[in-house]
Simulated assay, not measured.
Amino acid sequence: MTTLRLRPEGPADTGPVRRVLTAGFARPDVSTPPEVGLVEDLRGTDAWIPELAMVAEYGGEVVGYALLTRVHVRDDGGSAPALALGPVAVAPHRQRVGHGTAVVQAALDAATELDERLVVVLGDPGYYRRFGFTRADRMGLTSPWSGLGEPWQALVLPASTSGDGPVPRGEVLFPPPWSKV
């Protein structure tokens, strides 16, 4: 029986992750989707957290990917760390069987274990609601995508050793590679 294996991305996964992203975000008007460049540009920056780049492997093949990277929430008193979810992709031949949900949940679980507090995402509310995401603007979070309404979402992760302190509010600042998508 083949099972799904969820794990952090390793050095040998660069090519397979690129293939999953290229296939998952394929569009007729571009040969390489911008999400591929986003991941490649984020690797090696201060925003990259190796434990939060998750792959789903099925039958020895990387079939899914979910990335959480460092962002900051700026308010009047300074800034607080947070995470951005994305891109998330599943190889077309393995879509609609739960691999996307599994790899996203694995990334969120890993973030919780690292005592992260807040995750933002721009995506389908119907999909991300299953993880507990809600409208980010209602949480006092803004970004270049705030004007899109419901797709701009946030999730407060369960507190562990970090306690139940206030959730950051303010402008979410993304690292430069995000400006290309």
Results as ranks from 00 to 15, higher is better:
2 T>D: 13
3 T>Y: 02
6 L>H: 04
11 P>D: 15
15 G>K: 00
16 P>W: 03
17 V>A: 02
19 R>A: 15
19 R>M: 04
20 V>H: 01
22 T>W: 00
23 A>T: 02
27 R>G: 10
35 E>L: 11
39 V>W: 05
41 D>V: 01
42 L>C: 12
43 R>N: 01
44 G>E: 07
47 A>L: 10
56 A>I: 06
57 E>A: 04
57 E>H: 11
62 V>C: 14
68 L>G: 06
70 R>P: 02
71 V>R: 07
73 V>H: 02
73 V>W: 10
76 D>T: 08
87 P>L: 10
92 P>W: 12
98 G>M: 11
101 T>S: 13
102 A>W: 04
103 V>G: 03
106 A>D: 00
107 A>W: 03
109 D>A: 15
111 A>C: 05
113 E>M: 09
114 L>C: 04
116 E>P: 01
119 V>M: 13
122 L>A: 05
126 G>Q: 13
130 R>N: 08
135 R>S: 14
141 L>N: 13
143 S>I: 03
144 P>T: 12
148 L>V: 06
149 G>V: 08
149 G>E: 08
150 E>K: 12
152 W>R: 05
152 W>C: 10
156 V>Y: 03
157 L>F: 09
157 L>K: 07
159 A>K: 12
159 A>Q: 08
163 G>C: 10
165 G>M: 02
170 G>N: 12
170 G>H: 12
172 V>F: 09
174 F>K: 10
174 F>W: 07
